[in-house]
Amino acid sequence: TSSHKLRLYERDDYRGLMSELTDDCACVPELFRLPEIYSLHVLEGCWVLYEMPNYRGRQYLLRPGDYRRYHDWGGADAKVGSLRRVTDL
């Protein structure tokens, strides 16, 4: 099985509160109590970021690497509604 891990930060450049995720999350704002995510670091696996909860809205593919600001993943703003692991490519 492949492993997945990413870290979410409330501010750009990996500042502020950090939360780690290793499984799908249908509602990021509810789980982490963060209305917006300004940076993230994908440590393992690929993920799909959705701008709205319950895997809706615009989708962004996140490969392992650094995303210091939301425009690094192509986002128009810092809204992160849900995240899902990519298990098949």
Rank of each mutant, 00 (worst) to 15 (best):
T1D: 07
S3N: 14
S3T: 11
S3K: 12
H4M: 01
K5H: 08
L6I: 15
L6P: 03
L6A: 03
L6Y: 00
R7P: 02
R7G: 03
L8V: 09
Y9W: 03
Y9E: 02
E10Y: 05
R11T: 07
D12K: 13
D13P: 03
Y14L: 07
R15Q: 13
R15F: 07
R15W: 04
R15L: 09
R15T: 12
G16K: 04
L17E: 14
L17C: 12
L17D: 15
M18K: 09
M18T: 08
M18I: 07
E20K: 00
L21H: 11
L21F: 05
T22Q: 14
D23V: 09
A26Y: 09
A26Q: 10
V28T: 02
V28W: 02
V28M: 07
V28Q: 02
P29H: 08
P29Y: 12
P29W: 09
E30Y: 06
E30R: 10
L31I: 10
F32G: 11
F32Q: 10
R33F: 11
L34E: 13
L34S: 12
L34P: 08
P35D: 14
E36D: 15
E36H: 11
E36K: 15
I37W: 13
I37P: 10
Y38R: 11
S39T: 03
L40I: 14
L40K: 05
H41R: 13
H41I: 08
H41Y: 06
V42Y: 05
L43Q: 11
L43W: 06
E44N: 13
E44M: 05
E44Q: 10
G45N: 00
G45P: 00
G45L: 05
C46I: 15
C46S: 15
V48E: 14
V48K: 08
L49M: 08
L49A: 06
Y50A: 01
Y50L: 03
E51M: 02
E51G: 03
E51V: 05
M52Q: 14
P53R: 07
P53M: 05
N54F: 06
N54Y: 14
N54S: 05
N54L: 10
N54R: 07
Y55Q: 01
Y55M: 00
R56H: 12
R56W: 02
R56L: 06
R56C: 07
G57V: 02
G57A: 03
G57F: 02
R58P: 04
R58Y: 08
R58M: 08
R58N: 07
Q59N: 09
Y60M: 08
Y60I: 08
Y60G: 05
L61K: 14
L61N: 12
L61E: 14
R63E: 13
R63F: 15
P64C: 02
P64A: 04
G65I: 04
G65L: 02
G65Y: 07
D66L: 10
D66S: 14
Y67W: 04
Y67A: 05
R68T: 07
R68L: 10
R69L: 07
R69F: 09
R69I: 10
R69M: 06
R69E: 04
Y70D: 01
Y70A: 08
Y70R: 09
Y70H: 12
H71Y: 09
H71S: 15
H71W: 11
H71C: 13
D72T: 07
W73F: 07
G74F: 02
G74W: 03
G74Q: 11
G74R: 05
D77F: 03
K79S: 11
K79E: 05
V80A: 04
G81E: 04
S82R: 00
L83C: 13
R84C: 04
R84T: 06
R85E: 05
R85V: 07
R85F: 00
V86I: 14
V86Q: 12
V86G: 03
V86H: 11
D88A: 05
D88M: 07
D88F: 02
L89C: 11
